[in-house]
Design a protein around this nucleic acid. Structure first.
Lengths: 152, 152
DNA sequence: CTAATTGCAAAAAGTTTGCAACCAT
DNA sequence: ATGGTTGCAAACTTTTTGCAATTAG
């Protein structure tokens, strides 16, 4: 456990968004100089292999990373703005386990990405009331399919 | 509509798997010589923009393509073998639309990828009976979350 | 001390692009 | 004819790697 790894770990744990490697590199540099981008690449790869990070692809060519959440959450990407909305949904969680089981598999990891366009006359469903209400940056999400944070 | 595009279209329509650009290029070459990989890249990009193809990322660095299915289907990737199992699930379909609506969005596109490990003592659920039953390569899938094709 | 980790720069891999030649309409 | 499409090769971007120097344990 070297200083560089500790530094990257710190940058990651402080991030509430989905930085790509270059962004991680920039943040690490800002926080404490002298680290190489090769190390960042090597470290995220390592952390991904260990199951600590998950690699995402929201389009745009570069891989993005976020800490693995063991109560999963998912992403809705606004195709207009590129903004990413995180959400959790227990029913979905249940369903995918059921699907996997039905196919004879045990779930190791999961990706759900919804790409959508904001609706004009949005939100008249009951659940919509709780929308746009919480948005403390760090404390991630949780609760029945409520939107969580909106981050790039 | 040039010969090359027609050729690529044909290769794609004959594919029941998820080829990457190099694979498409190889197949196109085999089928009828003299086409350049740049054209393949340009064509898949174009078809993706037109909504005819969808780009997938199953890990491994290269983008893979498949025809857009308007009754969606999803992928379960066997982490051990890399094999891809396609499946459809109406309940999931319903749920994601509901989730998007709840967040104020209209769904444009969707990705669900499950990564799983084959279970030893697989399949004792009721639904499991229909498992491993159909596997005609070309005719894609369809029906309530039954496994469809198993392809690389 | 030894094995693991780092920085650097070079290279690989995947994708995009400028441009002149070419083809469909 | 002319505007879109192609091939080629060069360029770009992202990621990986060899190697000597450095550091953790």
């Amino acid at each position: 456990m070297t200083g560089q790894r500790r530094l990257i770990a710190r940058v990651l744990s402080e991030a509430s968004d989905h930085p790509d490697v270059e962004e991680l590199y920039r943040r690490a540099l800002a926080l404490d100089a002298h680290i190489s981008i090769a190390t960042v690449y090597r470290t995220v790869r390592l952390l991904e292999e260990k199951g600590i990070l998950e690699r995402r692809d929201f389009g745009g060519g570069r891989a993005r990373y976020e800490p693995t959440e063991h109560g999963h959450h998912y992403h809705l990407i606004d195709v207009e703005s590129g903004k990413v909305i995180e959400f959790a949904d227990p029913e979905h969680e249940r369903l995918i386990h059921e699907i996997a089981a039905r196919l004879g598999f045990e779930l190791v990891s999961t990706r759900l990405e919804l790409f959508g366009r904001r609706r004009e006359n949005a939100a008249k469903s009951a659940a919509a009331k709780s929308e746009q209400t919480r948005s403390k940056a760090r404390g991630r999400l949780r609760t029945a399919s409520e939107p969580a944070s909106v981050v790039e």
